[in-house]
Each structure stands twice: as C-alpha cells, then as structure tokens.
C-alpha cells in the first residue's frame, strides 16, 4: 500500500482499506434529472395532498387571500418542471450510456435477469450472505424502477395534464395532447381518484427507494448515494 500518497495531516489514521475500482456510471444529465425530479416530487406530494385536503378555512375577504391558488400553482409548476425533465431524461436514453437506458426497458426475456432478480430477492430476505455487484441497477431495483417509478410517473403525467387541461379549456394544447385520458375515464372524478392513488404509490416508492439506497450504501459491495452525486460507482472488493 502506497501510504506516501495520502497526505494525512492529522494524528488520526483510519483503518487500512484497500484500493478500490471505480466506474463512471451516472452521467451528469442523469444526476441533474434525479435531484430535480426528487425536488419536484416532494413539492408535488405536499401540494397534491393539500389540493385534495385543503388546510383549514381562512376568514376575512376572499380578495385578501390566494391560498389554494398558491398551492395549486406550486403543484402545476412542479408538475410542468417534472414533466419537462422526464422528457429530457427519456431523450437522454438515446444519447447516454447503457445505465441511462435502464429506466425505460427491462430485459424480461433474459435468463440472467431472472437469476439475478431471484438472488437479489434472497439478499433482501436475508437468505444469501452477499449481494452481487452491478454497474447500474440490480435486477430487483431495475424492475421496481420501470414498473413502479417509470410507469407510475407516465401515468401521473398523463392524468395530471389531462386534469390541467380541464382548467386550461377544451381548445388548449393540453386538451389536445392529453384529452384522450377522458376517453378511458369519462368521469373526471375517477381521474382525480386514480391520480390521488398514484400520489401514494409514488410516495411509497420514494420511501422504499430511500431505504434501499441507504441500506445498500451500507450493506452492499458497492457505493450508492454518493454515486448519484459524483456519478462514480465504487466497488468494495479485497481483490482488484
């Protein structure tokens, strides 16, 4: 070990670790999208819940307040931002590296995928000692990402813009682009109900996502959280 290269100015010397392999996996557009999306989702969860269950009624003149207006504005602004970034994220799959494509397809036909999925499930069920290493998502995460996050987000974008078009008017661009939602659910109340259920689905996704990221960061044989900040994934192995 070449300690000479480490300028340790303190008396405290950490436990000796080994040199580790690092790969560049999450390119800048992916990372920027991830954190913008996380911020948007947070705003959307809170404002969305408040739209369905508004805060306590305000008194005085109506002209003195604009509470629901601001809540709805926050929801619409965050929704529009999220949708634009989601679109850009999708376009990036045609430009970016292999890991950037994982969000939009799942190799369900590959035996290797199912084998990895089973192993990862066992890892979460405490049935195997070590998880496998993956440059991008592990098969279980990959599956969750696509079927819950990606499809869920597409559903929320479509139903969200469809409801937005109701206020924007039937001649609006939004109505032309997303009015078809009302061909599937003729009653807007249903669209509201499903959109609201979608809030909870994505909220649960976020909870599981954060838990898994933190746990994997500690337990797995590779870095997690810092990877989404620096873009670099570090593998923790004894041998290189």
């Amino acid at each position: 070990m070449d300690y000479a290269k480490i300028a340790d100015i303190s008396e405290l010397k950490g436990q000796a670790v080994v040199a580790r392999r690092t790969v560049y996996v999450y390119q800048a557009p992916v990372r920027i999208w991830h954190w913008v999306n996380a911020a948007c989702m947070t705003v959307l969860f809170i404002s969305g819940y408040l739209i369905a269950t508004p805060p306590g009624s305000l008194g005085g003149e109506a002209s003195a307040h604009f509470q629901m207006g601001y809540i709805r504005f926050a929801h619409f602004a965050a929704g529009q931002t999220m949708a634009v970034f989601f679109l850009m994220r999708f376009i990036w799959t045609f430009v970016g590296n292999a890991a950037s494509k994982q969000l939009f397809w799942v190799p369900l036909w590959k035996k290797n995928f199912w084998d990895g999925l089973l192993n990862e499930a066992k890892w979460y069920a405490f049935m195997v000692k070590y998880p496998r290493q993956y440059v991008g998502h592990n098969p279980l995460a990959h599956m969750m990402m696509f079927f819950v996050f990606t499809l869920g987000t597409v559903f929320m974008i479509c139903t969200g813009f469809a409801m937005y078009s109701e206020g924007a008017g039937q001649d609006s661009l939004w109505a032309k682009a997303f009015g078809w939602v009302f061909s599937i659910f003729p009653n807007s109340q249903d669209v509201h109900t499903y959109h609201h259920l979608g809030l909870w689905v994505l909220c649960l996704f976020a909870a599981v996502h954060v838990y898994a990221a933190v746990r994997e960061d500690i337990m797995s044989r590779q870095s997690m959280i810092s990877s989404m900040i620096s873009g670099e994934r570090q593998f923790r192995d004894d041998k290189v």
Partner: peptide, 16 residues
C-alpha cells in the same frame, strides 16, 4: 473493513 463479499472479480461477471 472486512471483505464484504467473496471473490469479487469472479462475481462481477454475473452482473452487468
């Protein structure tokens, strides 16, 4: 600091 897994180089091939 204990090795988190078995022989890693062999295991990597199963992932991506």
């Amino acid at each position: 600091g204990k090795a988190p897994g078995p022989d890693a180089s062999q295991d990597l091939s199963q992932g991506r």
